[in-house]
Amino acid sequence: ESFERTINIAKGNSSLGMTVSANKDGLGMIVRSIIHGGAISRDGRIAIGDCILSINEESTISVTNAQARAMLRRHSLIGPDIKITYVP
């Protein structure tokens, strides 16, 4: 059984350190890789294959690959914290 989780990740000045791609069925974006030493890796809660539904409350539903990457990059630049809703 999968259910949504919303977490805050304190990334400070470091990068999030993950790559994503659009989910084929349009439901959010899938975590493709996690870079060791990045904020996601240090936090430890998000794993490869998890589905991200929103970043800082901006929905990732029906985004393209390019939009998913641009959204991740944009939110990575805002502030020291990032809020991610995902399904493990």
Rank of each mutant, 00 (worst) to 15 (best):
V20Q: 04
G49H: 04
L72K: 04
H36N: 14
P88M: 04
I84L: 09
H36Q: 14
D50F: 02
S14V: 12
S59W: 02
T60K: 04
N13E: 11
R5V: 10
K83W: 07
E4T: 13
H36Y: 10
V20N: 00
S54L: 06
T85G: 07
I34F: 03
S62F: 10
T85Q: 07
S2W: 06
I7K: 02
A66Y: 09
G37S: 07
A10N: 15
N8M: 14
A66S: 13
A66K: 13
N8H: 12
T19W: 06
S21V: 12
G79Q: 08
I40M: 05
Q67L: 05
D50Q: 03
H36G: 12
R73W: 09
R69S: 13
L72E: 05
A66R: 13
N23V: 04
R42F: 04
N56E: 05
N23A: 14
I52Q: 01
D25V: 08
A68E: 02
I48S: 07
L16G: 00
A10Q: 14
I40Y: 03
G38Q: 10
I40P: 01
G28M: 01
L27Y: 14
Q67N: 07
Y86C: 02
M29N: 05
G44W: 01
S62I: 06
S15D: 15
I46N: 00
M29F: 07
L16K: 00
R74T: 08
F3L: 12
S21R: 10
V63D: 05
N8L: 13
A47Q: 14
V20E: 01
G17P: 01
T6W: 02
I78R: 14
N23S: 13
C51N: 10
N23F: 04
R74M: 06
I82H: 04
R32Y: 03
I78E: 14
S59N: 06
R74F: 07
A47I: 05
M18N: 03
R73E: 15
I35M: 13
I35E: 14
M18C: 06
M18F: 08
R5Y: 09
S2L: 10
G44S: 06
I84Q: 00
T19L: 09
S15I: 11
I78C: 15
T85M: 06
E4K: 15
G12S: 08
Q67Y: 08
R5N: 08
S59G: 05
R45Q: 03
E58H: 08
Y86W: 04
R32I: 08
I61Q: 15
E57R: 07
K83C: 08
A68P: 02
G44M: 02
G12P: 09
A70M: 12
A39V: 09
D43A: 00
C51H: 10
T85W: 02
S41P: 02
I78A: 15
S41E: 15
A22I: 09
R74I: 06
F3W: 09
S54T: 07
I48P: 13
I40W: 02
E58N: 06
G26R: 06
R45D: 03
I40E: 00
I78K: 14
R42E: 10
G44F: 01
E58M: 06
I9E: 02
G49A: 02
A68S: 05
I55Q: 00
M71L: 12
S21N: 08
N13W: 07
I55S: 02
R5I: 10
S76C: 09
S2Q: 09
R5C: 09
V20R: 00
S14H: 14
L16F: 05
G17E: 01
R5Q: 13
G26S: 07
V31M: 02
I30E: 11
R32H: 08
H75Y: 13
D50H: 00
S14I: 14
R73A: 15
Y86E: 02
A22M: 15
I55M: 08
A39P: 08
R74N: 08
N8F: 12
S2A: 09
S41Q: 14
V20P: 00
K11V: 15
I9C: 03
I61K: 15
T85V: 08
R73M: 10
D43S: 03
I48C: 10
N23L: 03
E1L: 09
N23I: 02
S33C: 05
G79F: 06
G49D: 05
A10E: 13
E4R: 11
E4C: 11
A68K: 02
I34S: 01
G12K: 12
L53T: 15
I48N: 07
I78P: 15
T64K: 05
S14Q: 15
D25G: 11
R73Q: 13
A10G: 07
E4D: 07
I82D: 04
L72C: 06
K24C: 08
F3H: 12
I46G: 01
D50N: 02
M71P: 00
T6A: 06
R42H: 07
S21D: 12
